[in-house]
Design a protein around this nucleic acid. Structure first.
Length: 438
DNA sequence: AAGAATGATTGCCA
DNA sequence: TGGCAATCATTCTT
């Protein structure tokens, strides 16, 4: 270009330095001639947009070189200055949008806009903590959550970068345009600033939309993740069997201790998800607790339905117990359950005990804590064996065969086992009963 | 598809 | 705080 842009600050306002314009013209004819000249220039300016680009460029150049141009330009500058003064008040800096701040905060909290990676996993961990589950089984879901979150994060950053780049490009473009235009019309730095501000506002509103949809995506992901805790997956067969074995071998007192629950959870590889109380000290046995809670209630509600199952498990554990006790002591015959009342045979051949020692990786430590329960479970097992053998003759006893052992009149499990001496045709494991009554 | 089974959740109580 | 009862929501079975 052969000329410098004429930004307003580089010009004096007024007519100084431009003789012939703004000065009093005593000679009327000279004034008429100039008026026509100016009118001609203005006409050319007005029609410049109707011409082809090349034509316009040529005309523009001609106008720029016109002797009247500097004077007219100064007039424009003067008018413009007044306009800018009137506009100035209108462009107040608005305070930061509260909604945008909320979105920013949320994105930061969710680890989307925060520092790399760490934020994401922290948010995932937070979500996991909110869900209350920290078990190994949840790791798959966690990684799924993390993967999805980082996907969102990546998209967000890519888009944001794109927007920023576009914004910069557009700003540069507009600046160039303005600079270009400043050759033919006066443009103040404030005007440019204002234009840039408008562009940035436009782009930030687009960014806000991006942030909003990102937030929505995160919320959806999060709610799905949190809702996953409610998604039920049936325990596998082995886990159910383990729990059932424990339940039926402790039928008169199916309330596993915390340690037992932990142990069962470990054995069953039960997934843990607990939301009931965030202050719960342990979450590793809650599924077991759920299972036992459900089982107790459902068993109690419909004993008949569970009787077959109860008998099956009782028989199974009894067989196990019998074979074990047969190995351990020749005196104990499987067909004489009451003989199992001896403490010696309970010690190792007890169904619950055996179950634990077979299943547990460190059954020994568990056994030590379960001596009382072991005896009780032996009683329970034996009762079922007796029931199956059909050893009851009287109708009262018969009705008790498939009755919930240990359930009292109120429908709750009593601490002491059912008085087996009443139902048992044999002498009954009185010693066992007394052992377990506490 | 309907109903049963089942794991999880919630509110209440002792 | 643990357990019960009711209920929800999903999965399994028929």
């Amino acid at each position: 270009m052969d000329e410098q842009p004429r930004l307003m600050h580089s010009h004096g306002v007024g007519m100084a330095g431009h003789p012939g314009l703004g000065q009093h013209m005593p000679d009327g004819t000279e004034g008429e001639g100039r008026k026509q000249d100016i009118g001609d220039i203005l006409q050319q300016i007005m029609t410049i947009t109707d011409q082809s680009l090349d034509e316009a460029q040529a005309r523009k150049h001609a106008l720029n070189c016109h002797r009247m141009k500097p004077a007219l330009f100064n007039v424009l500058c003067e008018i413009k200055e007044k306009t800018v003064l009137s506009i100035r008040g209108a462009q107040e800096e608005e305070p930061p949008d509260p909604q945008l701040m909320r979105l920013d905060n949320m994105l930061l909290a969710e680890g989307v806009s925060g520092p790399e990676k760490g934020g994401g996993s922290a948010a995932a961990a937070a979500a996991a903590a909110a869900a209350g589950g920290a078990g190994a089984d949840n790791s798959a879901e966690h990684s799924d959550y993390r993967a999805k979150l980082s996907q969102i994060r990546q998209i967000y950053h890519t888009e944001l970068e794109k927007y920023e780049q576009a914004c910069n490009e557009f700003t540069t473009h507009v600046m160039n345009l303005l600079r270009e235009q400043s050759r033919t019309r006066p443009i103040s730095p404030k005007e440019i600033e204002r234009m840039v501000g408008i562009i940035h506002r436009k782009f930030s509103s687009i960014q806000m939309q991006l942030k909003q949809s990102t937030c929505e995506a995160v919320m959806i992901l999060r709610s799905r993740f949190l809702d996953a805790r409610r998604k039920r997956r049936n325990f596998n067969k082995q886990a159910t069997e383990i729990l059932n074995e424990y339940f039926y071998s402790h039928l008169s007192n199916p309330y596993p201790s915390e340690e037992a629950k932990e142990e069962l959870a470990k054995k069953c590889s039960i997934t843990v998800s607990q939301v009931r109380s965030l202050n719960n000290k342990t979450t590793t046995s809650n599924s077991v607790s759920n299972w036992f809670g459900n089982k107790r209630i459902r068993y109690k509600k419909n004993i008949g339905k569970f009787q077959e199952e109860a008998n099956m498990y009782a028989a199974r554990t009894a067989v196990t117990a019998a074979s074990a006790s047969a190995q351990g002591s020749q005196a104990n015959s499987p067909s004489t359950p009451n003989s199992a009342g001896s403490a010696a045979s309970f010690n190792m051949s007890n169904s619950g005990d055996l179950f634990m020692s077979v299943q547990s990786l460190n059954g020994d430590s568990y056994q030590g804590a379960q001596v009382g329960a072991n005896i009780q479970s032996q009683v329970d097992t034996l009762r079922h064996v007796i029931s199956q053998a059909g050893g009851y003759s009287d109708s009262l006893a018969a009705s008790q065969i498939y009755s919930p052992q240990g359930i009292n009149a109120n429908g709750g499990w009593q601490d002491a086992p059912t008085p087996s001496s009443v139902t048992s045709p044999t002498e009954g494991p009185g010693s066992v009963h007394s052992d377990t009554s506490n």
